[in-house]
Design a protein around this nucleic acid. Sequence first.
DNA 1: TGGGGTCCT
DNA 2: AGGACCC
Length: 640
Amino acid sequence: MADSPIDIRVIAHFDIDCFYAQSEVLRCPSLRGRPVGVTQKFLVVTTNYIARSLGVPKMVSIDEAKKVLPALVLVNGEDLTPYRAESKQIMAVLGRYGVVQRSGLDEGAVDITAQVKARLQCGFPALSFSSHILGWEAVSGEPGNDSGGTFVNVDSTKLELEKISGVDTALLVGSQVVSEMRSAIEKETGFQCSCGVAQNKMLAKLASSLNKPSKQTCLLSGAVERFIAPLPARKIPGVGRQTEAILLDLGVQTITDLKKVSVCQLSERLGARIGQFLYDACRGRDYTPVLDKGPPKSITVEDSFRNCTTLQQAEGILRVLAPDLIKRLDEDRVETGRRPKSLTLKWRVQGPKWNFISVSTDLPVELLSPSLSKEQRAAVAVEVASRLLLRNLGHSFHLVVLNIGATNFVETSTSDPAVRDIRSFLQAQGNSPRKELKVTSKNDARARRESFKTMTSALPAGPTGAVLGLNFSAVADSQKTPDTHIFGSGHVGDEYQLSNSSDEEDGWRDLADQLKSGVRASCPTATNFTQTQSYKDVSDQLQSQQSTDLLHSKSIFKTSHPAKLKQFFVENEDVMKLESPDSQRAGVTNTGGLHFRTQTAGSSRIANSIAKREVVPESTSQKKKRKSRNGTLDAFVIRK
DNA sequence: TGGGGTCCT
DNA sequence: AGGACCC
């Protein structure tokens, strides 16, 4: 019965190898061959396999990672925008082969049953792929390997087809499909992935993590029990820390142990749903279909920090988060036509507990109103959110995470003319010149100064006396992503000392003041940017502490405070409006590049500070974008 | 431990 | 609104 073709499913679980790290390497080819870690705040959240082989696992602190491997290249990955875009590409490739259920940006299950059936329709198809296979001995007569499966170059001409059951036949054909899918992903997106092939989502996922990176594993029917029996119960997707603790209390460590517990006992301790789920799971059963979950049910942005204890500081953070949220909501609306009905605010306070506190309210209509500028809508979001905070926080508080988001999406019918108008308006907005940026509530200098204080005090303190290389890119009117910034590309020859302060906060303020007092822009030549130095050179200089050379090279640095940088540009865009006939001719709305560095620090201190920052060469996609603008350099330097 | 998400209660 | 889970 279970073997009846109608029950057979072939499920593939895909897992992009160290997704963030691979993404960074792909966008910055000079990182290839080097150990790379992607950081968020003080954490290295992912490392590539080179780094892992040199002893740096994922999810370790930056300090720890650097201690183990000083040569580790760190790239900041707090902004998920590029990862989201790449994930979308990958999922689109998967979608050509069947229904995809994604989980996170880098994983997904695909039901490839239909593909397999189509290939079996004309008899047994030719197979030619490489895979680890569990249960190989039963279908081949060759000796097998129980830990991780036998690595096989499958050649269908050598298989004894009579010995192979319907399920296993389907799984082998599925493995052929998966092999082709992996090639397609790599060819079309550049990404390598690992993959598991099995009869259901759970088994496919477990199989996918068996051989990494860039390998696929097929779990044949005869090996299912042997494979899962020794696994810790915790390995079952859906069993987390709490459930594990309860199971341990029941004397359950492995899946074998779990099998001995009755459904009743499990349900008693964990509830009927989880009880039944565990009962099935430890027997390798998972009947849940692969379901396309559609667009996200919530869109949120968040930031973490150390020292937010006043409402003013919280507002400063919200002012950074809100524009990001607005932008993502606009993009979602163009794609899906729906609109969110609720605004949520979540925060976490300092303390031992991991607790998030959340409140939600009706999302104000102005937030989505096409008659308001993005900036005005962001200001609305900030106001509403800070009022929510004010209502829910006592006089004294200490926030460490702040999250603002939208949920409760409702479809807006596309036949409604008003909705169509809004959609076309939003679509057109991406193609039309940007409106003048008005800083709504922050026009007087004092308020702005306060805001800077807020920003800087709310963010973790960076090393002082550091070199900061900044740049923000020109964006042609026709480009779809008007807010793309190329952080940190530049040229030291173009670098002007705008601050004498050794304190970063003062530096920012100096910079703002000087901009206001008539600092002028000029346009350097394009060669400044095309000769961007390779990462390797910069890195070698870092290693050998040649700080002087480094300062005079065309190095690229990423600011340690991208949020602050962004805020800076938003608040100063009026004074930074650069005058250039070129830019006007090119239809460029706003361009600029600026550098400042502090002078009081000695060179070794500077070198130290540099070493703590990420070296981020211009990525190839950025380069391409720049070149696509006809060789016009839309970047400027603030000149004294 | 980040910056996101899901679903269930 | 919060909890447990996932990456």
